[in-house]
Each structure stands twice: as structure tokens, then as C-alpha cells.
Design a protein around this nucleic acid. Structure first.
Lengths: 340, 340
DNA sequence: CTGTTAGCGCATTCAC
DNA sequence: GTGAATGCGCTAACAG
């Protein structure tokens, strides 16, 4: 009923009694078409259920109406969320998304990038595994990095240092002084930035006279890493133990909460935990996780709009992270909290 | 250095001293090319760094070298895993993947399906939200459903009834007699099948003289649903309580474990829990989750191979689920377990 | 076995 | 303001 025999542009032209050129102009929204033919063409399109052949159109422009997306790993909930938002927004704008995972392998990243570019998408949005992208994106394809910067490309990022600082501020305001920081892998710039931001802020606070003791524990972004570090760390007797943990990712934080519970420590009564990212799971676990939210939705929207604004140049934009206070943080049990 | 000026097929032909037809034949692996020209063409391709223009190629065949993937929700870990496997396998076979989410909305599913089909992918693999697909997939595009059947299409599925039965068998073998089943949403066929399979097996077992008490609790597949049902259920005093829970999804099972722990019940000592799916998280939580594994990797491989075997017709295939025994199940505390 | 050539469906010059 | 003609890069059908 809906799909007849796949009308093509010249069927529409014949049906409307005009030439294909005119139909094409109508399709392009070219205002130089008189009212009469315009209406007839529109009617013909409607009547025949005509849909322009995207593939043929692509040959002319040497570009397909698709946005490429290259991420490290779709199993990482943060990237899944990013992909989800990008897909939704791109779809609403009439663009499909080509998904490609590098699986954190730079060689694979290079191959995947080339493979995606070969499809000639109008744009590509990527989360680079390193700051130097494996292959260049040739000119007509608009390229934008997201989540992490890449040399030579505009980037949609979050101020990681500020985000980490906000997490520390929150814990300090609750009265915590002995705090552990669970760092992410040293080879990702975001992990390094978060750590730097955290330590910098700690110094600033110390300089104002509030003595702080910060333990840094290097690890990975994943669940297991957080659990393992916490398991070791929380064995210590109460007096020597940290009263709060700030993690470089929600997954780490969730792992830490799990470990704490196994050791009989109540979160947040005995131990406060703050995460980073605000993945979906963060608000589902018990206790609901206090975390530093990266505005994934806004970032995705900005990214898609930017790459689709073909007449504007691509510019970098940095977002601010935002503290989301939920149930995994509470005043320090030992000392009186500063009620800020 | 790598990308010159985008050589095209006639540049290669000129460089090799042959015609474009010969180059095309070499590209297609047509054996009717003599050794001499073959080598010269290959050398020319190499030297010029020639890569066929996928878009132009697509215009001829009216098909792009891409596989469409339509799933309900990439944030669901099970579908994320499916997408991950499909992407990896398709990429290795030289095909990109267009990702599209219906967000469990049939209207959106219909729109997304049409949008993806408009790109003219060689094939589309989909997880239908209902058994009646919203729009037809026209002939040249190969269509295959996965995870759930769709009327009129070949399907790659798992025997849900058998999977549920295996879970029950495991619990019964451990000596459990009072068992709760957490069902999935009634409007998905897999949830209904799992429930049926579970109850059928329970009847079979009862018929052999082993008295079983099965509580069915309807819910959703997600984490929260499992947690909430378990929270209500496990309030009962020890004697009246079930000793084991079988869930229709790993997310439910993980939620149930969380609730049990909050109520002071040890898993698996006081309560055994078995999940369904074997998502990545299942082997990461503590205790590691005993679950019914759906062979996602094999299914994905089978699906991709099938849609890319252009000369073979698409056929349905049903896989068997497999019990993965980990740490969330143990002999029933009250009774002596049957050591099977 | 290989060269030549006609489109694939559309957008975009040019004429008119 | 509109129509006719050209070509995007490639594949396949046909000739040789």
C-alpha cells in the first residue's frame, strides 16, 4: 500500500508534467519555482509515494547522509550512553549513524576509521584512543572529537579538572579530611586531568589552613578496579581508614561500594563515595550514587548540531561538570561537618 | 603520504595499461583475467593507493556495503553486547554497521526501520519489538531477526523454554524446593516463553514425585524490578521464605542479590539466585552470578554470515542456552541437597 | 580473455 | 522560470 514500485524522479516529473530539473529544484527547496508547478510536483510526490534514492544522491555529492561514530567500546556504559544520545539526536535530524568500535586498540582504530571514511559519511564524531588520531579525515567530511581532545580537530569536552575539584569540595564540605582518590588509567588524558584537578584543589584547600590527607590509588576505570582497590584499602582499622573515596569513574565507585558492603561498612554512614560520569546505573544502585555528572545529552546535541551546520566552522566547546548529590555521601562520622 | 589525490578506476587502468573493465574484474576477483594483466593491475592499485569508491559502487547495485542493525535499546547490556559482537564480526567481514534504536517504541521502530532501509543496506538485522514488524523489508535487502522471532522473517533465537528449564533443574538438583520465579514483561515473547518453560518443567518434576512450590512474580527485565520484588519477598521469616530465586534476566537477578544483601541475607548461603542472559556484569559482581547463558557471540557470527551469504537463502536457527554455574547458587540450607 | 560502452538516479550546469 | 543535457565512478553486458 505504501511502497508501490519505487517511483523515481522522472516518474514524478512525468506525472506533474514538468521536467526532472524542476522536480529536483522542488526537492532542494529552491525558491525559483513558480507556484503552479510547485504544487503539482508536491502532489505528484505525494501521490506516487516518491522518496529520493539516497544512494544516487550520494554519488553526486560523494557523501552519504550518515554520521560516522567511532568509540572505544560500546560495552562501557558511558560510551553506550553517548552513543544512545547521538543516535537519537541524529535520527531525529534525519541522519543515520554508522557505529564502529576500536576496542581500545589503536591499530583497530586506524582500520575502523578508514573503513568508516570509505563510506563517505557527511561527518564523523569520534572518541580518540590517543591524542594523535591514527589517520587524517579528508576535507569534505566534517570531523569532531568528543569526550577527549584530538590534535588538529575541534573537540566537545568536559572540564575534567573542575569536575574533580567539585567532587573534592563536596567531600570537604561534609567534613571529610582523610580521602582516597581512585585514579583512572594513566594513558588516558581524562584520567590524568581528573587526578591533576583533584590534587590541585587539595593543595588550594590545604593552603587555606584545612589540613587534608589524600591517598591516590592508580587503577582502571572499571568496576573490578574499584572493588579491588577498596578491598585492600578498607581493611585498615577505623582510625587509620579514609572516611571518603572519590573515584575517577562511576564503575569504580560502584565497585568500591560493593567492597565496602562486603567488609561490613555502611555507605554513606561509615564511608562516603563519590563517582564520576553519572551513568544510568548510578541512580539505580543502593545507595544511589553521588557523582559528578558529565552532560552527555547536551554534549551529544551540540556535537550533532555542529557537524550538521555545514556552513559554520567547527569549534571546540568545553562543558562544565555538575555535582549530583544523592545518597552515597554523608557528613564525616568522626568530625563535625562544616555545614556550608 | 597515504592519501594522494584519490585515484579512480580509470587512473588505475591507465597506469596498468589495461581497460577499466579489466580493473573491475580484478576487483571482483573474476578468475577470467590472465596472469600478466592481473599482476600489473594489482601493482597499479598498490602504487596509486587506489580504493574503490563505495558510493559509486553502491549506485550500480543500489545497495551500500553496510548492514543495518535495529535494536530496542543500546543501554540494555544484553543488546549492547549483541551490538558489540555484531559490529566486530561485520567489521572484520568488511561491512560497516548502521545502528538504530527503537527505544521500545513501535512508532519509532517503524520510522527507524524506514530510515535505515532508505540507506539501502545490503542487509538488516533486527530485534523486533513485536512479532509483527512495523514495515516490510523490500526484496533485495536481506532481513534477519535476532533474539526474537518476527512473522515472515528468518530468526536467530535461543530456546527460551529450555533455558528456563535448565535453571530450574540446577536449583532442584541443589535441593531447593521453595523457589520464586521473577518473570519479565508479559508483552515480550521471550519473557512469556521463559515463564512457560519454567512452569512446564516444574510440573514435570512434580509429576515424578518431587514436590515443588513455585511463586511467580511478574516484573520488568531491569535491575530495579528485581530489587523491588526481592525486597518484598524476602521480608518473610525464614521458614516461609523461598530458598532460591530464578530471574528472567541478569539485571533482575543482580537487583535481587542487592536486596538480599540489604536485608542481611547471604548469597548463596541463605539464598541462591540464578539469572538469565550472562551479561558482562554477571561475572563481575560479588558473588559472581550463576546464570543461563545465551550464546551471543555464536548468534552474532551466525547472523552476520547468514546475511552475507548472498547466494544462500536465510534460514531460522535456534540455539540452546547453557547453564553457567558460578557463585550465586549453593545447596539449599534447609534440606540435604541431591548430589546429582 | 579483454576493451568499449551504456546506464544506475540524481543534481546541476547551460540554453531558452 | 524551466527544460535538456552532462557526468558523478563504477559494473556488467556485449563485442571483438
Amino acid at each position: 500500500m505504501e511502497t508501490e514500485k519505487r517511483a523515481k524522479i522522472r516518474d514524478v516529473a512525468a506525472h506533474a508534467g514538468v521536467s526532472v530539473g524542476t522536480v529536483s529544484r522542488v526537492l532542494a527547496g529552491n525558491p525559483a519555482v513558480k507556484h503552479g508547478p510547485l504544487l503539482r510536483v508536491k502532489a505528484a510526490i505525494e501521490e506516487l509515494g516518491y522518496r529520493p534514492n539516497q544512494v544516487a544522491r550520494a554519488l553526486r555529492s560523494n557523501r552519504i547522509n550518515v554520521i560516522g561514530l567511532l568509540i572505544p567500546d560500546i560495552l562501557n556504559p558511558y560510551f553506550a550512553q553517548l552513543a544512545n544520545e547521538l543516535e537519537r539526536i541524529a535520527a531525529d535530524a534525519g541522519y543515520a549513524l554508522i557505529l564502529s568500535s576500536s576496542h581500545n586498540d589503536p591499530k583497530r582504530e586506524a582500520r575502523q576509521l578508514v573503513a568508516v571514511l570509505e563510506q563517505k559519511p557527511v561527518a564523523i564524531i569520534f572518541v580518540p584512543t590517543s591524542e594523535k588520531l591514527a589517520a587524517d579525515v579528508p576535507a569534505p567530511t566534517r570531523a569532531l572529537s568528543i569526550d577527549r581532545p584530538a590534535l588538529g580537530y575541534a573537540a566537545i569536552t568536559v572540564d575534567q579538572r573542575q569536575g574533580a575539584a567539585v567532587a573534592l569540595d563536596h567531600l570537604v564540605a561534609l567534613g571529610h579530611r582523610r580521602i582516597a582518590y581512585f585514579a583512572g588509567p594513566d594513558n588516558t588524558i581524562n584520567a590524568r586531568e581528573r587526578l591533576d584537578g583533584f590534587l590541585n584543589r587539595a593543595e588550594e584547600i590545604s593552603a587555606t589552613g584545612t589540613a587534608l590527607s589524600i591517598d591516590v590509588h592508580p587503577g582502571d576505570f572499571d568496576f573490578q578496579s574499584g572493588e579491588q582497590i577498596a578491598r585492600d584499602l578498607l581493611q585498615k582499622p577505623r582510625g587509620e581508614r579514609v572516611t571518603a573515596i572519590a573515584a575517577a569513574s562511576d564503575q569504580q565507585a560502584i565497585g568500591a561500594i560493593r567492597a565496602a558492603r562486603d567488609l561490613g561498612l555502611a555507605v554513606p554512614t561509615d564511608l562516603s563515595v563519590v563517582g564520576f560520569d553519572d551513568i544510568t546505573l548510578a541512580s539505580l544502585i543502593v545507595p544511589r550514587l553521588t557523582t559528578v555528572q558529565q552532560p552527555v545529552g547536551e554534549m551529544a546535541e551540540t556535537a550533532v548540531r555542529a557537524v550538521l551546520a555545514f556552513d559554520a566552522s567547527l569549534e571546540s566547546q568545553e562543558f562544565l561538570a555538575r555535582l549530583i548529590v544523592r545518597d552515597s555521601t554523608a557528613p564525616c562520622p568522626a568530625e563535625e561537618p562544616d555545614r556550608a
